[in-house]
Amino acid sequence: MNTTPDTPAQNAATLRPAPLALSDVVASVAVGVRQFRAIPVLSMAFAALFVAIGLLLFAALNHAAVAPMSLSLAGGFLLVGPILLAGFFSVADKLRHGRRPHFGDILDGFRRMPRGGWVVSFVCGLLFLIWITDAGILYGFMVGREPIGFARLLRIERIVVDFAAYSAIMGAVLAFILFAVCAFSIPLIFDRRAQLVSGVVASVRAVFGRFGVMMCWALLLSAVIMASALLLPLLLFTLPVMAYASRELYFRTFPVAGADRAS
């Protein structure tokens, strides 16, 4: 899949997004489920690393009695999610070629990621820090030093609902910007079909050019990942499935000449 166009004209052609429909989103998720079922142990083993990190973070929040911040962390996971994609992409590509992937392929995916992909990942991490900082400031204004652990969080008190609502509105802007920039730039850069700038431009063009379909995908992705980040064991299944699905949707948006779609 690492197809590098020979000329600028060819490059422009390969970065022209194809028409999309909601059926492409449904089919991409179906491919994600099939690929997960083909290698469930490897997929869950990689996802388990982030589940463990999430458990440690949630334990720290409960110990500090600032449990409502877990809602911001769950939303913020969408901002750092693109950093993880290289490992899942490498595994998915092995499956597409009919080969059996192993754990070394996950590491190989990160080694294969060009510098431009790491620049985008750095921006993701920077936006995550901005998001958490803003959420912390908002928490200080709305909740203050009132101790709230997870036991009290489950009561769904008004103060928690208000914090969640305002922080969601605030984070939605960052999440949309990041989605438009990263949705297709990282896979294009990973496959060396684009450089940093051309990949970002192509991604933004694809998102706005197929706005309705892409917003449906964005809402589905955010709902599944945020719910799973709050109910961490679910992330073992949903994180790989959605990562594989995003790889398939990328191939449907920017088809590679002569390449078959995943069956």
Rank of each mutant, 00 (worst) to 15 (best):
T14S: 15
L188S: 15
L79A: 07
V160W: 04
S203K: 07
V200S: 12
E146H: 14
M69F: 14
E146L: 14
L230E: 03
S23C: 00
A135K: 05
G171H: 10
P147A: 11
A218T: 02
I225E: 09
G109R: 09
A168P: 00
M226P: 00
A30N: 13
G109E: 12
V26W: 04
C124N: 14
P5E: 11
D134Y: 08
S72A: 15
V29A: 01
R158V: 13
L178V: 06
L71G: 02
L220I: 11
P233M: 00
D24M: 04
D191E: 15
D93N: 10
V241N: 00
F150L: 09
A259K: 12
L127D: 03
A60M: 06
P68N: 06
V120N: 00
R34F: 00
A172D: 06
G87S: 05
R99E: 15
M226D: 06
S121C: 08
F237I: 15
P255Y: 07
G144I: 12
L230I: 01
S167G: 14
V161W: 12
G109F: 11
V207Q: 08
E248D: 15
R99I: 13
V181D: 03
L153N: 06
P82N: 01
F103E: 08
K94P: 05
I156D: 10
A227Y: 14
R205T: 14
M215G: 11
V29K: 00
L231S: 09
F176L: 14
D105Y: 04
D191L: 12
V33R: 00
L154V: 02
A45G: 05
F128D: 01
A30K: 07
L85V: 14
A45R: 04
V33W: 08
L15W: 05
D191T: 14
A259Y: 03
D93I: 08
A48I: 11
L174I: 01
P40R: 08
L84K: 05
I186C: 00
A38W: 00
G209A: 04
A92P: 10
G98P: 03
A86G: 11
F254A: 02
I148G: 05
R115F: 11
A9W: 04
G98Y: 07
R252K: 12
G117Y: 05
M44W: 06
F141G: 02
L85W: 15
A262E: 08
S43H: 09
D191R: 15
I132Q: 11
P147H: 13
P8A: 10
L71T: 01
D108G: 13
V201F: 09
R193M: 06
C182S: 14
L79T: 00
L220G: 06
A262Q: 03
P82F: 11
A245F: 10
I83N: 02
W118K: 10
F58T: 10
V161E: 07
L15S: 01
T253H: 10
G258Q: 07
Y250M: 02
D134W: 08
P82T: 12
V181M: 14
I189C: 02
A180P: 02
A164G: 00
F163M: 03
N11C: 08
A18D: 13
R16P: 02
M215S: 08
S43L: 13
P40I: 11
E157Q: 11
R112Y: 03
E146R: 15
G116S: 03
W131R: 01
V120H: 01
A172Q: 07
